[in-house]
Design a protein around this nucleic acid. Structure first.
Lengths: 242, 242
DNA sequence: CGGCAAACGGACGGGGTGCTCCACTTAGGC
DNA sequence: GCCTAAGTGGAGCACCCCGTCCGTTTGCCG
């Protein structure tokens, strides 16, 4: 585990104008990995049905829902599903593209908040709410899909912006200095653990955990917080789990 | 989900002497669900091998490791495994009986500490360390096995003692008043989420998360901590997941 | 309207797991 | 040492999931 390149990159000095330019670049680059224009009418229709079914299935059952279940829910044969989306990853990437950009703009909105700390907390709360609403979100967010350049690009954007959010909140003296950007994945994983098969209690559990952690993130805690975080937003699972 | 009976029971006023008596009763009741005395020598031997293999497998691969893997590791046929332990649950119960009592005595030790807060924190840290050392521990701890009366008994004991630990820490003014005993399962689940397939980072992640949460548990945080915990040590999964 | 390529869906082989049945082996009392 | 019941292991069955192949259907262009 030699070094954490992305964290270094995240902390690299970039002024506001540069950042904004980078953002626009980010958002322009992936125009859509999308449908591919030359699809027969019925094929395009089925593609939409598949995406809808997958979105629903991922949200309620998580990312490792059987492909056959998605196909059935979409009223489509398995072959059709696989023809349109050769790998589960491609389907995940397509389904969570919107959510990912939504997540990114959530962070952007948070940066627009004049109060850095409020921006930080609301960003975290909203992100966790996204995980609560969609059981697959956090996994999709924390899994790396090297092939999907657009996806990776927007994620990287969100990460960079989040790091900026962290920097500002620290600068304002509201966020503890030893907070690390990677603590976001810590929090997300924790929320995952707390919401996994918690049924109706999931929402309240998540909210309470997030409240606890946010209060701990706030500056003023003199306690040393012993262990540094070894995991980084940069090196995630290269492929979806299992 | 009407009410949380066990929590009510936990908070019921019991003085120290009564508690100690109850503890001894608890510890005497399950003498062992154990081997069953009338086993042939080779059978007893195989039983031990199975338990060892299962312990190892559960620790490294989690509670849902394939039964065949356990049998193979034990150098035993699958049938032997199933004859000795008809259900996966029975095996889990047997394997984690020791760890559970170890957990219980950890809490007891913590109660012996003259400093209630230090007792509280070390108890939590040790329990989380147990989860770190054994990937199956938290799941085994948080899963209810209604059939295994001894197991359930010692768990109930540990829970009651932990509630006492909480009460004392609050009384000493070191633990925030709105802490709930059920927050222990919140923490355990969170640690699970953070350590699950985190590989080498598991230890550091767990330690950091626990440190964050412990600091948040400490009294002095004036923020209201909005949502109350809906899940309770009392109603857990009736059976092991999947 | 006719024909072809695109699209479809179910069947299928392969791998993995849970659990059982049954023919063989062996411990240990006599 | 023998005999029997306890014990054993692996084959086998049922199920689930993945991903592909192939015979059939259908959109769409001429």
């Amino acid at each position: 585990m030699p070094g954490h390149p992305s964290r270094i990159e995240l902390e690299r000095g970039t002024d506001r104008a540069e950042l904004r330019a980078a953002v626009h670049a980010d958002l322009r680059v992936p125009p859509q990995d999308g449908p591919g224009p030359d699809l027969r009418a019925d094929a395009r229709h089925n593609r939409e049905r598949i995406l809808g079914a997958a979105r629903e299935a991922f949200a309620t059952r998580g990312l490792d829902v059987p492909m056959a279940a998605i196909a059935r829910r979409a009223g489509v044969g398995v072959a059709t599903l696989y023809r349109r989306f050769p790998s589960r990853e491609s389907l995940v990437v397509e389904v969570f593209a919107d959510q990912l950009t939504a997540c990114a703009s959530t962070v952007d909105d948070a940066l627009a908040d004049p109060d850095p700390w409020r921006g930080f907390t609301t960003a975290i709360e909203k992100i966790c709410a996204m995980q609560l609403a969609d059981r697959g979100f956090a996994t999709a967010f924390m899994t790396a899909f090297p092939a999907a350049t657009g996806y990776e690009h927007t994620r990287a954007h969100a990460e960079r912006r989040f790091a900026e959010l962290v920097r500002r909140a620290k600068e304002a003296g509201r966020l503890r200095a030893d907070f690390d950007s990677a603590d976001l994945v810590l929090l997300l994983k924790a929320v995952c653990g707390v919401t996994a098969d918690a049924g109706e209690a999931a929402a309240a559990s998540s909210r309470r955990l997030v409240a606890y952690l946010l209060q701990s993130f706030e500056a003023g805690r003199t306690a040393p917080l012993p262990p540094p975080p070894p995991l980084d937003l940069g090196h995630l699972h290269p492929v979806a789990p299992r």
